[in-house]
């Protein structure tokens, strides 16, 4: 953080996303926004509100309902010199676009021997806890992280939502941004005005501690912070907000766990092969002698995300995180 005073505004997370889009479209005339309902409506969550009025309908485009089609079109738009920012309306609505993501978005630069760039951004609200119908609640980041050629970031705070989106838009590679919709309107914070960039691949220490590291991203960061509060009398718990899953700030991860000697990874997504497993593997490879207990995962379960009357049983809760921390401390 810069020592010089930066003017800030108190914004909700979704407002910070909107702010980033306004700033970046004004900064770079090659940036365009497309997706379902992003223009006239300004997005179902209002993330793109005011863009059409400010920049015209050629730079904020309502597309036909075709996630694979408009992501594919974004590949062609890159070839024509544009920097498209594509909105997937909801996490699970993005599944059709995985076809284009895997077969082209992550491969096209490579396929040209690095001679053409594909600087596109996919942003989507993700995650559960919002009492929504089926397939509006998923945490699909693993599919994206597992796809070579793309980068993935997940902000937890309004300032990072703005800064990571700006970094994604300026990045020469395709970047997928997962915005925690659970906290779209409840996460509030000071957001720098004007241009604000948070470099991809840099984790944020959300809370300092010395006995155990809780690793999380997106909406789970706040859950971990509440767990750390609840545990304050028993242990000094550090909370590491990864911010970027790819590139991953493995230095910050290893430095923290080497210092605390204990780690619990918390993710909303189903457990098997989730990103928490990757974190656990990295710690097994690089920090085995620093660990004083097993690396535990607190995750969603390997089942379809449940209907909302059951969803609180599925989502990692403060209680489950506290329980996992206690088990590691007692090891």
């Amino acid at each position: 953080m810069s020592a010089t005073a930066v003017a800030t505004r108190e914004l909700m997370l979704v407002e910070a996303v909107n702010d980033a889009l306004h700033v970046e479209l004004a900064r770079d005339p090659s940036v365009i926004v497309l997706g379902e309902d992003v223009g006239r409506l300004g997005g179902v969550f209002r993330a793109t509100a005011g863009l059409r009025e400010a920049f015209g309908e050629k730079r904020c485009i309502d597309t036909p309902l075709s996630e694979a089609g408009f992501l594919g079109a974004a590949v062609g738009l890159c070839m024509a010199g544009w920097r498209p920012v594509v909105e997937m309306q909801y996490d699970a609505f993005s599944y059709p676009c995985l076809d284009q993501l895997i077969t082209h978005v992550g491969r096209y630069r490579w396929r040209t021997g690095g001679r053409m760039g594909f600087p596109l951004v996919i942003r989507m609200p993700y995650g559960g806890g919002v009492r929504a119908p089926e397939l509006h609640d998923d945490s699909p980041e693993t599919y994206y992280v597992h796809t070579p050629g793309v980068k993935v970031a997940v902000p937890a705070t309004p300032a990072d939502a703005k800064g990571l989106l700006a970094a994604a838009i300026r990045d020469p590679d395709p970047v997928v941004l997962f915005e925690p919709k659970l906290v779209y309107r409840t996460a509030r914070g000071a957001v720098p005005e004007g241009e604000h960039v948070v470099e991809l691949g840099k984790a944020r220490r959300a809370r300092e501690g010395s006995d155990l590291t809780l690793v999380a991203w997106g909406a789970m960061v706040a859950v971990c912070e509440r767990a750390a509060d609840d545990l304050a009398a028993e242990a000094s718990v550090e909370v590491l907000d990864l911010r970027s899953l790819k590139p991953l700030d493995d230095e910050a991860l290893l430095a923290s766990v080497r210092r605390t000697g204990r780690c619990v990874v918390v993710q909303e997504a189903p457990r098997t092969c989730g990103f928490a497993s990757e974190i656990s593997a990295l710690l097994a490879e690089h920090a085995i002698l620093d660990l004083q207990g097993p690396v535990l995962r607190v995750t969603g379960y390997d089942v379809p995300y449940p209907y909302w009357q059951l969803e609180d049983w599925y989502m990692p809760s403060v209680e489950r995180v506290v329980d996992a921390v206690r088990r590691v401390l007692a090891f």
Binding site: A68, F70, G72, G76, M79, A80, W82, R115
Partner: peptide
């Protein structure tokens, strides 16, 4: 380099280059 000859890379999966062509032409 597709840009040098205005020929996109060979598309191996079926039909997935159609949206690219649409996007490029539109762009």
């Amino acid at each position: 380099n597709p840009e040098e000859v205005n020929v996109a890379s060979i598309c191996v999966p079926i039909a997935t280059h159609v949206p690219h062509a649409a996007g490029l032409a539109w762009g």
